[in-house]
Each structure stands twice: as structure tokens, then as C-alpha cells.
């Protein structure tokens, strides 16, 4: 039995009166890569953003049900502390218009670390883990905006790693990148799962099949609410899905 890091139980999310997620229950194993797949608008990004409570930035959002990180209710946890434990990488690389070094050390500094040599060590370690150190070690004090898209995204991963999270959420992290940069990100994810639990949203089914250990398939029902159709080990979902709709989606009959 896998150790579980994130759990949702009968979790629903509403935008005002509109139900965007409908009673979702799943368990995300620790130190594995879990992919959320499904057609546009099925709620997979909304579900992902529930784990670090980013949906709360949108006025009028309301939730029902439970979301647990390890054993703790995330809605009871201090949101700053939650986001320290659950990092996020966005669809478009979003480095701050600061130097590479200031980007990586932003998180630790916000959380109160002032010691320069510790910060430098964190920067090197995070950039190394994100497979970016060799490319940028001589230009740490140059603007992050000058990096290529793929490098910027790896910088954002390094920035997330720098606060030592337990979970890294990735919202279509490669959809704005070229194929070479995409492969690099995928390789990186594979090396990161040793230390972190990774949850990724992707449009790209090949990507889900390539990188993930577990896959959740989401689909909207007749009320446009997102439902989870099926969840399981990726190779089972892709070879012998138990639900007809999963099979139709994976074989490209819709979506």
C-alpha cells in the first residue's frame, strides 16, 4: 500500500452558485507523480489549485468536503504555512523581474531567513535540483527575464523547491515550452519525485503516460460540474481503463 500524501473526500467547489467540482474523492500517493487529465474546463486545474488554496484568491469561491495534507485539514492550517508545504509551478513561467538569485531566494527570505551563506547554499542546491545550476551559475545576478522560456520554468521550479515543500503542484508546466524544453522538464520531474510528491495537470496524454505513476481522469457532467471518472495507476488507466468514457478520451474519440 502506498503512503498517501494528499486526500480529498467528497470535495466540491463552487463559484458562487455554480458547482465546478462535484464530490471528488481521491488519494494521492507520496513520492509519486500523479497526473490529472481531462478535456478543457473539466476542473482539473481548479482541483490542483485546491491543494494550496489558490482558489481563495477568486471572490465568491466556496468549498464543501475535506482536503487533507498528510493527516491535517488544509482549511484549518495557516495558509502561509500550507503554501510553504505545497509549492506550485504555473502554466506560463512567471519569474519575478529580479535577478536569478533573488528569484530563488525569494521564498526563504519571505519566511525570515537572513543568513547570506545559508541563502547562497539554498540557491545552489535548488538550482542544482532543478537542473539549471550549470547554465546559470556565472550569471546569478543577472535578470531572470533574460533566460529562455524553458530556463525560466526550471527557475520557477527551483524557486518552489527552495522553501523545501513536501508537494509540488504543476499546472501544465510545459504547455508554453518547445519540445526540447518539455523533455527537460519531464526528466526533471522524474528526478524530483524521490524527494517530493508531484501533482501535474496536463492536456497532453502522451506526457501523462510518459511521466506519471498515477492518473486521474476528470470529466464534466451534464451540469458542467467536474467529476472524477477514474483514478488509478497510469499503466492501468492507459491500457485497460474500467470506464468507457476514459477509454473514449484516451483513444482520442473526444476532447
Amino acid at each position: 500500500m502506498e503512503q498517501v500524501r494528499l486526500t480529498t473526500r467528497d470535495y466540491s467547489l463552487f463559484y458562487g452558485e455554480f458547482r465546478a467540482l462535484n464530490r471528488i474523492s481521491l488519494s494521492i500517493p507520496a513520492n509519486r507523480i500523479t497526473a490529472f487529465i481531462g478535456p478543457s474546463g473539466c476542473g482539473k486545474s481548479t482541483l490542483l489549485r485546491s491543494f494550496n488554496r489558490m482558489n481563495e484568491l477568486i471572490p465568491g469561491v466556496r468549498t464543501e468536503g475535506t482536503v487533507l495534507l498528510d493527516e491535517g485539514d488544509i482549511f484549518r492550517e495557516d495558509v502561509v504555512n500550507l503554501r510553504k508545504r505545497v509549492g506550485m509551478v504555473f502554466q506560463r513561467p512567471n519569474p519575478f523581474p529580479k535577478t536569478i538569485y533573488d528569484n530563488v531566494t525569494y521564498g526563504p527570505r519571505v519566511h525570515g531567513m537572513k543568513n547570506r551563506s545559508k541563502l547562497a547554499a539554498i540557491a545552489e542546491e535548488s538550482l542544482t535540483r532543478a537542473a539549471l545550476w550549470d547554465e546559470v551559475k556565472d550569471q546569478l545576478h543577472k535578470s531572470a527575464m533574460a533566460l529562455s522560456g524553458g530556463q525560466q520554468q526550471r527557475l520557477c521550479i527551483a524557486r518552489a523547491i527552495a522553501v523545501s515543500p513536501e508537494v509540488i503542484l504543476m499546472d501544465e508546466p510545459a504547455s508554453a515550452l518547445d519540445p526540447v524544453a518539455t523533455i527537460k522538464i519531464e526528466e526533471l520531474m522524474n528526478s524530483l519525485k524521490e524527494k517530493y510528491t508531484i501533482v501535474i495537470v496536463t492536456h497532453n496524454m502522451q506526457q501523462a503516460a510518459r511521466v506519471s505513476d498515477f492518473t486521474a481522469f476528470l470529466l464534466t457532467d451534464e451540469n458542467r460540474a467536474g467529476n472524477m471518472v477514474e483514478f488509478g495507476p497510469t499503466n492501468r488507466i492507459f491500457t485497460s481503463p474500467s470506464d468507457r468514457r476514459t477509454e473514449d478520451y484516451i483513444t482520442g474519440r473526444f476532447g
Binding site: 503554501r83 506560463r92 512567471n94 519571505v110 520557477c156
Partner: peptide
């Protein structure tokens, strides 16, 4: 850009 705000908040900044 809002992506700066999101990026910072997601790192646990207030």
C-alpha cells in the same frame, strides 16, 4: 501581471 502576484502568494508570501 497577475502571474507575479500568484507566484509570490504561492510561495507563502503574505
Amino acid at each position: 501581471p497577475d502571474s507575479y502576484r500568484e507566484g509570490s502568494l504561492a510561495l507563502g508570501a503574505s
